[in-house]
Design a protein around this nucleic acid. Structure first.
Length: 193
DNA sequence: CGAGTTTGACCCGCGC
DNA sequence: GCGCGGGTCAAACTCG
């Protein structure tokens, strides 16, 4: 498999800074990602755990009520659905479920939606147990691109937004990567906190 | 009028 | 088997 695709610009920066996972190595642009680094020695309840779930370690990236990410949560249904946008539950027999990795990261932000340069369409919102904030579900609107993301604010610390990406974009970013600077403006990174 | 959002219903997996 | 919770669908709605 080729990893030339940009996974998710904003998240990738965090990913590269935290745990170097396979397909993210090329994504750390020369942009001002440095702000992301150094967060991992911060206090537990704040920034940041970034989770990267690979095949080896299926990303049980889920949140418990306290707003901590449980990497060991057993019941996180990871990557349901299949590659081609087939409906869930319509998997043909003999066809095993393809589990795409999920990547979760937290950011301090006033806004829920981080503009990462892709276009997203909201397709659902659910109340989450033990969390007073709803979780929003987004899909990339680019045709044929099946990337999804979930956005959720923590009850414990409402300044923290958890974004979970699933899948990889099959198309170039829709907006200038200069926009990344804009992202940084929207986010309050811990190091500058 | 098209693209995106809202929201209740539905589906499915899992634990009891 | 049943209920619960998470995830998705889709019709109605809003907005530019």
């Amino acid at each position: 498999m080729e990893n030339y695709q940009t996974y998710f610009p904003a998240a990738a920066a965090a990913a590269a800074a935290c745990s170097s996972s396979a397909s993210l190595d090329r994504v750390n642009n020369s942009n001002s990602n440095a702000e992301f680094q150094g967060y991992n020695d911060h206090k537990p309840s704040g920034f940041l755990g970034l989770l990267s779930g690979m095949e080896v370690n299926p990303a049980a990236a889920s949140l418990n009520g306290d707003g901590n990410i449980n990497s060991e949560n057993k019941s996180f249904t990871n990557n349901i659905g299949s590659e081609n946008g087939e409906k869930m539950g319509k998997i043909k027999k003999g066809e095993k479920k393809v589990r795409k990795p999920r990547y979760a990261f937290q950011t301090r932000s006033q806004v829920d939606i981080l503009d990462d340069g892709y276009r997203w369409r909201k397709y659902g919102q659910k109340a989450v147990k033990n969390n007073k904030f709803p979780r929003s579900y987004y899909r990339c609107t680019h045709q044929g691109c099946n990337v999804k993301k979930q956005v959720q604010r923590l009850t414990k610390d409402e300044g923290v937004v958890v974004t979970t990406y699933e899948g990889m974009h099959s198309h170039p970013i829709e907006r200038s990567t200069d926009n990344f600077e804009h992202i940084l403006n929207q986010m309050q990174i811990y190091t500058s906190y």
